[in-house]
Design a binder for these strands. Structure first.
Ligand SMILES: [Zn+2]
Ligand SMILES: [Zn+2]
Ligand SMILES: [Zn+2]
Ligand SMILES: [Zn+2]
Lengths: 131, 131
DNA sequence: TCGCACACGTTATAGCATAACGCAATTGAT
DNA sequence: ATCAATTGCGTTATGCTATAACGTGTGCGA
């Protein structure tokens, strides 16, 4: 998924996520952007849909929230299975990728003839500082 | 977590999930149980909280829905990391457990001194029949 | 008998997400 | 230039998911 030039709304939502310490809900993003003209949830959700499509943002299913992608590589190619640790204490989210996990899941799904489209791996717990 | 005798409400919610083909949202369960006296979401959520605690039910984060546990073994002990394939076509959910995945995730989290409390693995896609 | 824990019932509210409408700007043929 | 299709945007309304807060009743051990 090549990343086209972002629109004004997409840029504002992306900036909000990039500059945030942790994940943000769509409504929290809306509140942050009210000063800049945002008025309705759909403005946020539509921007998020595109950013997710471009791979610039990830959705955390267990939080109903969103984070900017922290992959080191550029977003020119699919980045395979993405996993997250999520600290319940400080809210810190760490994105990681592991080829062994990916291969193992691939073998397991192939065994049941299941065609994978999206894989969610989220690990809730406490980080080193909050343990 | 030993499983005590279930209360009336817990039993009704458990039965609804057990007899369902696929995952059910809390509000869908509520609708199914209105005839049997259920009136409010909290009756469902409170029962679900207990069933989750006892390990009889799993929550699917990516669907905001719940399924009965299909583990073969009895629910006398923790059943480690649980993973699911979820078919977007027919809604079929398959629960599985894999020690290799569990060990690999354990190694990865230990490397960042992260203390895991709950792991979510959900694979969305299409099953053999719906491919 | 008192105090406590627990399940339950009810009303209200909070939080997350999308439907449906219309308008404007862009693009890319014809 | 003109038309049609696509895309983004703004707005209102609605629907789905989850919890707060309050009160009741019951069982059980101190
Ligand atoms: Zn990423
Ligand atoms: Zn932390
Ligand atoms: Zn299970
Ligand atoms: Zn299917």
């Amino acid at each position: 998924m090549a990343t086209p030039q972002l629109t004004k709304n997409q840029t504002m939502v992306m900036d909000a996520l990039s500059h945030s310490e942790g994940p943000l809900s769509a409504y929290t993003i809306l509140d942050k952007l009210r000063d800049q003209g945002f008025r309705a949830p759909l403005q946020v959700y539509r921007a998020l849909d595109k950013l997710l499509e471009y791979g610039l943002v990830h959705r955390l299913e267990s939080l109903n929230a969103f984070v900017a992608c922290t992959c080191p590589h550029e977003h020119e190619h699919d980045h395979g299975v993405t996993a997250f640790t999520i600290c319940e204490g400080c809210g810190q989210v760490t994105e990681f990728h592991d080829i062994a996990i990916e291969q193992r899941l691939s073998a397991l799904t192939r065994a049941q003839n299941f065609k994978t489209e999206k894989t969610t791996i989220e690990i809730r717990g406490h980080c080193q500082s909050c343990a």
